[in-house]
C-alpha cells in the first residue's frame, strides 16, 4: 500500500470525517476546555502532537506487532506521548498546566487518538499515518476553537483574553458554565451537518447529470 494523498487525508480529517461533528468522538474534552480560546488552542495542539506521533510510531512497528496485543501496545505508546506533553507543560508553561488541570492527562483516553490508531495507523504507512494524525488533530482543534470563540465572546466579551466588546456588554454567565458548552456544541454540529448535507446533494446532482 502506498498510502493516501496528503490532500485527501486533510479533507477527510478537517471536514468529511471530522472527529467531533462527524464521528462525535472527543466530546468530553470539547465540553470541558472550551471556556477560554487559549485553553482550547493548547489542548488542540497537545492532542494533535499526541495523535500524530502515536500514529507514526504505531505505523512504524505495525508489521512486528503481534495482532492480538496491538491494543496494549497502542495504549502504551499513546500514554508515553501524553505524559511527555504533561511534563513539558509543567516545566515550561506552568500557568497553562494549571489552567488545563487534569485534562492533559485525560488526552490518553480521548477516543480520537485510539480511534485513529486502530482505524488508520494499523493499516497505513508511517508518513500517511503521521499526516492523518495532524489532520484529525487539526479538525478537532478547529471545532474546539469555534466553540470557545462563541463561549468566550458571549461569556466574557473577550477573544484570546483581549477585550473586544465594550462595557455595554452584559456577560452571559451561562456560556462559561458547562451547560453553555452543550448548547454551542449542538449548534456547531447542526450547522456543520446541514452544510455537508448540501454537499452530498450537489454530488448526487453532478453524478446524475
Amino acid at each position: 500500500m502506498s498510502g493516501d494523498s496528503p490532500k485527501k487525508i486533510f479533507i477527510m480529517g478537517l471536514w468529511k470525517d471530522n472527529p467531533v461533528f462527524r464521528q462525535i468522538i472527543g466530546i468530553c474534552s470539547s465540553l470541558a476546555v472550551t471556556n477560554f480560546m487559549i485553553n482550547s488552542l493548547i489542548m488542540g495542539l497537545g492532542l494533535t502532537f499526541a495523535t500524530a506521533f502515536s500514529e507514526l510510531t504505531i505505523s512504524i512497528i505495525r508489521k512486528f506487532t503481534p495482532k492480538h496485543i496491538r491494543m496494549m501496545v497502542q495504549v502504551l505508546i499513546i500514554s508515553v506521548y501524553v505524559i511527555m506533553i504533561d511534563i513539558f507543560l509543567k516545566a515550561y508553561y506552568p500557568e497553562m498546566s494549571k489552567a488545563l488541570g487534569p485534562y492533559v492527562g485525560l488526552i490518553i483516553t480521548n477516543c480520537i487518538i485510539m480511534g485513529r490508531c486502530e482505524a488508520y495507523a494499523q493499516k497505513n504507512p508511517p508518513l500517511s499515518s503521521f499526516l492523518d494524525g495532524i489532520a484529525s488533530g487539526a479538525g478537532y482543534t478547529l471545532v474546539l476553537l469555534a466553540i470557545s470563540f462563541v463561549r468566550e465572546l458571549l461569556g466574557f466579551g473577550t477573544v484570546f483574553g483581549f477585550k473586544v466588546l465594550g462595557d455595554w456588554w452584559t456577560n452571559w454567565t451561562i456560556m462559561i458554565m458547562p451547560p453553555g458548552a452543550f448548547f454551542v456544541l449542538a449548534v456547531v454540529i447542526w450547522i456543520a451537518r446541514s452544510i455537508s448535507l448540501e454537499d452530498k446533494k450537489k454530488e448526487k446532482e453532478v453524478a446524475k447529470a
Binding site: 512497528i61 492480538h68 496485543i69 501496545v73 505508546i77 511534563i87 509543567k90 516545566a91
Partner: peptide, 27 residues
C-alpha cells in the same frame, strides 16, 4: 508477544524516566 511487550515497555519507560529526571528541577 510477551517478550515484545516487555521490550517495548522498557524502551518507552526509559525515555519517560529520562525526561522526568531532566525536568524535575525545573518543575
Amino acid at each position: 508477544p510477551i517478550l515484545f511487550m516487555i521490550l517495548i515497555t522498557a524502551f518507552f519507560t526509559a525515555i519517560l524516566a529520562f525526561l522526568n529526571y531532566s525536568t524535575a528541577d525545573v518543575i
